[in-house]
Design a protein around this nucleic acid. Sequence first.
RNA 1: GGGAGGAUUCCCGAGUGGCUAAAGGGGGCAGACUGUAAAUCUGUUAGCUACGCUUUCGGUGGUUCGAAUCCACCUCCUCCCA
Length: 403
Amino acid sequence: MKNEEIIENADNNENAVKTANTNENSKKISVWYEPIKTCKQSGARLGIVHTPHGNFETPAFMPVGTQATVKGLSPEEIKETGAGIILSNTYHLWMRPGSDIIKDAGGLHKFMNWDRAILTDSGGFQVFSLSDLRNITEEGVKFKSHIDGSKHLLTPEKAMEVQNDLGSDIIMAFDECTPYPADEAYAKRSLERTTRWLERCIKAHKRTDVQALFGIIQGSTYADLRKQSTREITSFDLPGYAIGGLSVGESAQLMNEMLEETTPLMPADKPRYLMGVGSPDYLIDGVIRGIDMFDCVLPTRIGRNGTVLTSRGKIIVRDAKYARDYNPIDDECNCYVCKNYSRAYIRHLIKAGEMFGLRLASYHNVYYLMHVMEKVREAIRQDRMLDFRQEYFEKAGYFKKPL
RNA sequence: GGGAGGAUUCCCGAGUGGCUAAAGGGGGCAGACUGUAAAUCUGUUAGCUACGCUUUCGGUGGUUCGAAUCCACCUCCUCCCA
């Protein structure tokens, strides 16, 4: 899947690399944040994150490849969308094929043939998503494997060991993604345990020279707890900080309120990563509140399930009304899919269960989000992020209607 | 020519007197999906002047308070033997 615009993106990325190498700031730590500018209108940040596997501009969206693959897309295709970093997962790769296999393969980059940056989640999200199969203790989390039912103990130390073996550029502290809703007492216990686990992660992390450990802020939907967690987590000098436990069922308004309690307390010279957020409206609102990095399964998942993102909002392209719609998914999109295929064809493929249809929808959705982020960065550059937000929402609306 | 078994709502296929507008699957339609147990899941799928009524289980006619279910004849289909 080739097209001209994508090649331009690649060029931009190379330019970014040059900037980094010639920057007198060149630091010894493996991953660092280079601020470029702050939007005068919104306070949104433009920057570059430097990693051992290349740099990427922020605000950035990271496609998710849980099992060492962004479902349906080849690494070459992911690059075409403009992605400079992708996500993978500790728990899943530990269960299968086993982190030793990936280590012996030469690390995750080599194993999956992805030479740009990789961030691995620690398994903290599986504490949330596999809640029926696990038991939390101070020591760690006992999991019953979702594959074969075998029992495993994931601890902060183990999460570091596995991620060290994987060799990802950014590794995440082992946390508990606190479920929503959570009562305040539980949310407090949970966030404090996540802080204690972070201390253990820092002690256990052996490859600080090539891998950056990010801490994760929790605190559920309680402003005081978010502040407490932010203070605790940022008291450790780390190359970056994430905000977790959001976008887990609470309203968009509540999520944004929590961000407003959190980001002002985070250091300005480190990247800020909002975990698990990926609809365009959430991305834009996160950027305005000072977020630099996002990841989400949304574009690939909804794509596989027949929904695509467009400049006029999402459409369920699987629906009957598109059976004879020979237009591209989005007539304003320059991606390979929109240049070559129609809604009617993609609908047909998805209805017929053809894997190519899933691929096309996934490719477009990832490209679409990458393109939104590119426009976001441009808006910051021009100090018009709030204007951009208004223009975008007027045209595309909300991904999900606000509650 | 002889024998046997069938025909059920869009399709396949349960159901063998009332609890049946009729299981289940498929297909159709619609929705959900946000650090991936997801190419998954959920709802819906006779009609209507709808909290009730009407039509429906090959056709016609019977038995019965009541039939997709029992009986008779008819039509068509499949299989086996000649």
